[in-house]
C-alpha cells in the first residue's frame, strides 16, 4: 500500500465554508492541522503552509502550496504528516514511532515529539545497526505476525542531536520553512533497512526524568492507551474505521512486547543505552 502525491501551483488559502471535524494544535496554541471533509475525500490544511486534498481511499494526494512555501516544505509535510494519515485511511496501522533492526528483528520507539525517537534510531543506524523508519511506523499483520514496513529512508534531527550522532557527512534534504530540524538521507554512514521486519519489541519513551536507565513491562491495557495516543487515524469519526482500528490495537496490545523505557538524556550515554536495549531485546 502507498499513496501518490501530485503538487500543483501555489494557491491562496481561502477561508473554508465549514468547520474542521478535527484539529491538531501546536504547543503554542496555534492550529497546526485542520481536518475537513469534502465531497470527494478530505482536505488537510496546514495554515500558511499548504493544503492537501486526499481521495476518499487515501491513495491519491494533491498538494496546493500556499504562496511562498518551498517545494522542500511540501515534501516534508507530505512525508511526515500527510502520508501516515493517508495510509491509515487505507487500513494500515501507522504509529508515531521510529524503528530499527536488531538481529533481523524490528524494535520500535514510541513517544511524544522531543522524547528521542529519531536520536535513538539515528544512533543505532550510525553504529552498525539499520533503521526502518524515523517516524510514521507502518505495521502490517502477515502470517500471524506483526511486521514493520520500512518507510522513507531519512531521519530528522535537531542540530544538537545531529552533531552528537552523525559522525560523517550525510546528504541533507532541502530545508523546510517550519522547523529547524534537518532531514538527513540514508547512505553509507546512516544505514537503512529496506525490507520488512517482524516486530519484536516496542519501547514507550519516558520524559527523561528517570535518574538511571529503567525498563518496565507495560500491562496490555496501558499499552493500548499508549498505542492509541500515538497512532495516526485520518477520520476519527468514521465508525467502521474506528472499530477496525480498535480491534487491531487490541490485538497488538495483547502481545507481551511493550515496555516503558526512560533514561537521562545525555548524548555521552547513548552507547550504554544502545547496549542496554540490545541486551533487553535478547535476540
Amino acid at each position: 500500500m502507498s499513496a501518490s502525491l501530485r503538487t500543483l501551483g501555489a494557491r491562496e488559502q481561502r477561508r473554508l465554508p465549514d468547520e474542521p471535524f478535527q484539529q491538531w494544535v501546536s504547543p503554542n496554541g496555534t492550529v497546526w492541522t485542520a481536518f475537513h471533509r469534502r465531497e470527494n475525500g478530505y482536505l488537510l490544511r496546514f495554515p500558511d503552509l499548504a493544503d492537501f486534498e486526499l481521495s476518499p481511499d487515501g491513495v491519491c494526494v494533491v498538494a496546493w502550496p500556499a504562496p511562498g512555501t518551498s517545494a522542500g516544505t511540501v515534501e516534508h509535510l507530505y512525508l511526515n504528516q500527510v502520508m501516515p494519515l493517508a495510509l491509515s485511511r487505507q487500513g494500515q496501522l501507522v504509529l508515531h514511532a521510529s524503528a530499527v533492526e536488531l538481529g533481523g528483528l524490528g524494535v520500535a520507539f514510541i513517544g511524544e515529539s522531543g522524547r528521542g525517537k529519531s536520536t535513538l534510531a539515528a544512533s543505532f543506524a550510525t553504529t552498525g545497526a539499520r533503521f526502518l523508519t524515523d517516524d510514521g511506523l507502518q505495521l502490517r499483520l502477515s502470517d500471524g505476525r506483526w511486521r514493520i514496513t520500512p518507510s522513507h529512508p531519512s531521519v530528522r534531527l535537531w542540530e544538537d542531536s545531529e552533531h552528537a550522532v552523525i559522525l560523517y557527512p550525510a546528504t541533507q534534504a532541502p530545508a523546510v520553512d517550519y522547523t529547524a530540524k534537518v532531514r538527513l538521507l540514508a547512505g553509507d554512514h546512516i544505514a537503512f533497512c529496506a525490507e520488512a521486519r517482524p516486530l519484536q519489541r516496542v519501547y514507550f519513551l519516558g520524559d527523561g526524568t528517570a535518574p538511571t536507565l529503567a525498563i518496565k513491562a507495560l500491562a496490555p491495557a496501558e499499552a493500548l492507551i499508549a498505542l492509541v495516543k500515538n497512532s495516526f487515524l485520518l477520520d476519527i469519526e468514521e465508525r467502521q474505521m474506528l472499530a477496525w482500528h480498535f480491534e487491531a490495537m487490541v490485538e497488538l496490545a495483547a502481545l507481551p512486547i511493550f515496555f516503558h523505557l526512560d533514561y537521562p538524556r545525555r548524548y555521552e550515554d547513548l552507547a550504554q543505552i544502545r547496549d542496554a536495549i540490545i541486551k533487553h531485546v535478547d535476540y
Partner: peptide, 16 residues
C-alpha cells in the same frame, strides 16, 4: 455503538 474487549485482566471500552 460501544465495543468492549478484555485485555489481560482489564476491560477496555470504545464509544464509537
Amino acid at each position: 455503538q460501544v465495543m468492549a474487549r478484555q485485555l489481560g485482566d482489564e476491560q477496555v471500552f470504545l464509544d464509537l
